[in-house]
Design a protein around this nucleic acid. Sequence first.
DNA 1: AATGAATGAGGGTTCATTCAT
DNA 2: AATGAATGAACCCTCATTCAT
Lengths: 221, 221, 221, 221
Amino acid sequence: MLERVDASFRRRKQARPRELLEAALALFVEKGFAAARAEDIAARAGVSKATLYLYFRSKEDLLKALIAERFASGMDIAATHDTSDAMASQDLLRDVLTAWQSTLMQCHAGGIFKLILTEVRNFPALADFWTREVIEPARRLVSGIVVRGIDRGEFRSVDPDLVVHALVLPIIVMCLHRDAMRPASVPDSSLLNAPDIFGRHFEFVLEGLIDRPLQCRGCCR
Amino acid sequence: MLERVDASFRRRKQARPRELLEAALALFVEKGFAAARAEDIAARAGVSKATLYLYFRSKEDLLKALIAERFASGMDIAATHDTSDAMASQDLLRDVLTAWQSTLMQCHAGGIFKLILTEVRNFPALADFWTREVIEPARRLVSGIVVRGIDRGEFRSVDPDLVVHALVLPIIVMCLHRDAMRPASVPDSSLLNAPDIFGRHFEFVLEGLIDRPLQCRGCCR
Amino acid sequence: MLERVDASFRRRKQARPRELLEAALALFVEKGFAAARAEDIAARAGVSKATLYLYFRSKEDLLKALIAERFASGMDIAATHDTSDAMASQDLLRDVLTAWQSTLMQCHAGGIFKLILTEVRNFPALADFWTREVIEPARRLVSGIVVRGIDRGEFRSVDPDLVVHALVLPIIVMCLHRDAMRPASVPDSSLLNAPDIFGRHFEFVLEGLIDRPLQCRGCCR
Amino acid sequence: MLERVDASFRRRKQARPRELLEAALALFVEKGFAAARAEDIAARAGVSKATLYLYFRSKEDLLKALIAERFASGMDIAATHDTSDAMASQDLLRDVLTAWQSTLMQCHAGGIFKLILTEVRNFPALADFWTREVIEPARRLVSGIVVRGIDRGEFRSVDPDLVVHALVLPIIVMCLHRDAMRPASVPDSSLLNAPDIFGRHFEFVLEGLIDRPLQCRGCCR
DNA sequence: AATGAATGAGGGTTCATTCAT
DNA sequence: AATGAATGAACCCTCATTCAT
């Protein structure tokens, strides 16, 4: 019976930390850590300032909890990727990166990237997070597909890191641009707002990557 | 002797605003706008806190002055570029971008990029600056060379913006990485610390760009 | 079984106020009224913070209840004293004061004395308590024995209050020293830590008090 | 000339720490450390709360500074004491203690004693202060005179510490009583408010101390 | 009766900004 | 022009107290 009575109350209590972290993330991203007020975070989570301190010992703690528990989710590149042997490496690569880019855009990863850039000096754990949860997984996955492509004779033999570089870094800038710059009045004519810019960028990079015996322009004749 | 003293004094006085802006830039970049203390900026410029307010009406004013007067210098991509017709477009492109990348690295443009990302919401002028002084000049210049290359039959016929995308965005991330992340303990094995990463990245992108009748891989034999 | 449970529960409930007062006393003594946290008091009494407020309307109320109900017990000088006529006044005095001093030491009266000193300004009732329950009873009792001694020709004829002064005040300091200072690192060589300091002090004062025809130091020879 | 212009300003600045310490002492004594508000301390010193923090890094620092710099002055028992050989030890002792008692009363040492008792748990330095600046100097001085008196045949041969005990501890209680209790409504009939109580107490203790061959009551005859 | 959750009010501390010299 | 001193306005955080179950 106690359970019944408490249900909604308990559910609330269970949800509090998550709600607070959500609110904190939003405000940290919006204003930066220093300028985000504890009271505003609490208000955004629908509680009073003091309640925030029931769940987190300090504003710093909030950020640390964000780093530890919440950042990772939602920007996992390896989440879903088809490894069927039948698939061409270039399609695999396209699928993975398109999905990741889409995920990052949807979860407003740019805000998080910005926060990491801004606060990494005060919270070195952010550097770890950045490396461990963003750069390296992406590198590992993309490299793997590139190596697979090279092994299968689909790709030219290139340093896989160069492909990572050419495909992943632009995604990061696009995220930053969207979540940090776009709210400000950036003209739509901007380079980064072009329609399907990532898709076309991907195909362009692919051009330099694929081994294409069939597309010989008759040079040897 | 009085004149001498006055002279240096005057020179000092003339230099004050510049010195203060310099100090402000350093601290804004290091700690962010909100966390940079007016007192520290003044101290770094070698004057008292009150003196800062003789030259700038507020901390915000400092940033606005920075945006208006100081950001542009030092990251101008068009500063020096050879337009001799004799030069191959790929060499031209390589020279320009290598020089720019080098300039950006040297003037710690990453810090400024970070500042722009962080404060653009509070200072919309930063968005203008970003577009007008960074993205568009680079786009214009690179596009121009690409078009020249296509016109001269050196490059494949591609959307020039894609080349901008593939070459410029990674440079931005590299700057951010260097000036915002590197001070934190990022492992040297990091993707972005690889030796001559930009040079190799450039060559990789170039591969997909050049029209290569001479570089046939022997496909027709 | 239900009865059993209820019984102990009831007993618990009956005991709650006492347990809370006990806990409050301990923490008020340890940290002072202002610095003692309601939550810590409740925790020490084994209940939740909210429960404390079922029994006492405020933290102040706790102290008032302490003053009213609990301080008096345990430091009553008149508790047990032998009034047999056969006893020499000096022995009577020694017995009474030694017993009292011992009682005070055991019940950590020094902490209470400290609390009285600290909070008397905010709780004037503490001054009443101090006078009515500590000073005056001791004064009455000691004075009475001194008068008895004088009447019986055992003591010199002195103002009884002077004896009270000489014997009671040092006891108070000793209590304060023990319960307020000793936990801090006071060197054992301290004046107040000497072995049997009270006993020896008593005998010293007694020397000046007794009429001693039998203890002539041979001055007339 | 600069000195002239600044004179009053500078004097103010020089005086600030002293004024703040004075105010802090008053409020710490009146309300205890925890309950004394920084704002009230500043207001009492005639400055704003923020100004307090120009001179002291925290409220704790204020107390530490008080301990280190201000407590000692004003309660120095050894300040002025005549060591002329011509003086009788009992007169020397009376003079010294009367002067000390008077000094302590005037500088409201009782408040400081109370503060020490209250805060010694949080500021162990207070225990050092108490021992080093109050108890031991008094002990040393009184002991010295007692030994001198014994050596010169003026006093009975007693443990000097007992005399310290009998004379110094009551002074401490009197101070505490006056500065901590008296503001509260303690009846004037109180033991400790008797006229010249210390003088009479001293004479009483002296009775038990002096060697008096001339005052033989004829016991040996 | 008991308590986990919540909060209003308030205190300590900082800092951008102004004042007096 | 320059600055040491001063401060009002926040902001972070705590805690006595109340609410909802």
